[in-house]
Simulated scan of single mutants.
Amino acid sequence: MLKAWKKSVQGKFARTAFAAVTSAALLLSVVPSTSAEHWALTGDVAVHDPSITKEGNAWYIFSTGQGIQVQRSDDGRNFYRLPQIFLSPPSWWKSYVPKQKTNDVWAPDAQKYNGRVWVYYSISTFGSRTSAIGLTSATSIGAGSWRDDGLVLRTTDSDDYNAIDPNLVIDASGNPWLSFGSWNSGLKVTRLDKNTMKPTGQIYSIARRTAGGLEAPHVTYRNGYYYLFASIDNCCKGVDSNYKIIYGRSTSITGPYVDKSGKSLMDGGGTILDAGNDRWRGPGGQSVYNNSVIARHAYDATDGGNPKLLISDLKWDSAGWPTY
C-alpha cells in the first residue's frame, strides 16, 4: 500500500470513505471478456486495500482504516459494514511506530489456517520505513473475539525494505509463509512457524523494481506454480492514480518469479492483469480467494475519485496464466 494513501486517509476519504456508500451496480469493464463475471456490487463499497475471504455463505472484506475495517455480504453482492476489529490500539504499537496516527491500520490480510482466522496487518507512517506487521486471530469471523497475537516483524529507516502489506501464503505442503513489502528493495517472503504463525527463518527477495512503485504482494499456489500478484506505480491520487496489477509465477515459493515473457520480477518484470479504464482508475491492493475470485480497489472517476471495491471471477488460460 503506497504511503501516500495516508494523506488521503487524513483528508476527504477519512470523512467519507468509511461511511455507508449506496451505489448503483458497479459493472467493471477493464478488459473485454465473455467468460469472466465482474460482480455487480451495491451497498457500502468504500474500501482501500481489500482482503477477501468467505465463511459459510457470507463474504467478508477486511481493509485499511480505523482499527481494521470489515464489511460483509450475505449474497456476494450487497455489502454492509461491521464493527472494526480494534476499538482502540494495542499499547505495543507505539513502541515500534511511535508516530503512527491513532488506530490507523493498513492493508490487512485475512485467511483461514489450522482452525483459526488469521489477520495480518501493518502500521506505519507516511514516508517512513519505521513500520510493523502485527497479527490478530479468532476461531471464526462470525464469532469475533479477536485475540491480539502481537508483533510479527518490524523495520526501521535503517532497513532497505518495509514491513507493510502482509499476505499469508500456504505452500504446497501446507506450510505457512508471509509475503510482504513495499517499494525500496522490493517484495519479500519468509517462512512462518505453524504454532506461533511468526517468522522462523530467512527472508527472501521475490520482486523488485528500480523505477516506479512495487507493493501489495499476494501469493497463491495452483497446479505446480506459485503465482505472485502485486501492485505497481502509484495509488492514492484519486483519478490521477496509475496503479496497476501485475503477476508472475515460480515453481518455488522463494522464486525466481517470471512473467509471461520470461522476464524476472527481480528485474522489473510483471505481466499486467489490470490497468483500469476510463471509470475505474488505478486498480490495486488485490486479494485472491480460492484461485477463483479477485478483489481490489479502484478510484471511481464518476464519484470524485473515491476508492471502491471491485470483485471479479479470476480465470486461467490454457497455459496456466491468470486472466479475467
Rank of each mutant, 00 (worst) to 15 (best):
H218R: 10
A216W: 06
G213K: 00
S241W: 09
P217E: 06
G224Y: 12
G212S: 05
G238H: 10
R208A: 07
G213V: 01
V219Y: 03
N242K: 08
I203N: 01
L214V: 11
D240G: 14
T220F: 06
A230H: 04
A216L: 10
V239F: 08
C235Q: 12
Y221Q: 11
L214A: 05
Y221M: 12
G238N: 14
G238R: 12
F229N: 05
V239Q: 12
V219S: 06
D233L: 06
T210G: 06
C235L: 13
G224H: 12
L228F: 02
D240V: 03
I232C: 01
P217T: 09
K237G: 14
F229S: 04
A211T: 11
A211E: 08
I203G: 02
A230S: 14
Y204S: 11
P217K: 03
G238T: 13
G224D: 13
D233A: 07
V239I: 15
I232P: 00
T210K: 05
T210R: 00
Y221C: 11
C235S: 15
N242S: 09
I206Y: 03
T210M: 03
E215W: 02
Y204A: 07
I232Q: 04
G212I: 00
H218Q: 14
Y225I: 02
A216G: 13
G212D: 01
A216T: 12
A207K: 01
F229H: 05
Y227F: 15
D233F: 07
Y227H: 14
T210V: 06
V239D: 13
H218C: 13
S231C: 08
H218I: 06
G238Y: 14
C235K: 08
S205F: 00
G213I: 01
Y204V: 07
A230R: 00
T220V: 15
N234F: 09
F229G: 04
H218K: 11
C236Q: 11
N242L: 05
Y226R: 03
I203R: 00
Y226P: 02
C235W: 08
A211V: 12
Y227D: 05
A207R: 00
S205A: 08
G213P: 00
K237M: 14
A216E: 10
C236P: 11
S241M: 12
S241K: 10
V239R: 09
N234R: 07
R209W: 00
G238P: 06
A230E: 03
S241H: 10
S205K: 08
G238K: 13
D233E: 10
I206T: 06
S241R: 09
L214N: 04
T210I: 04
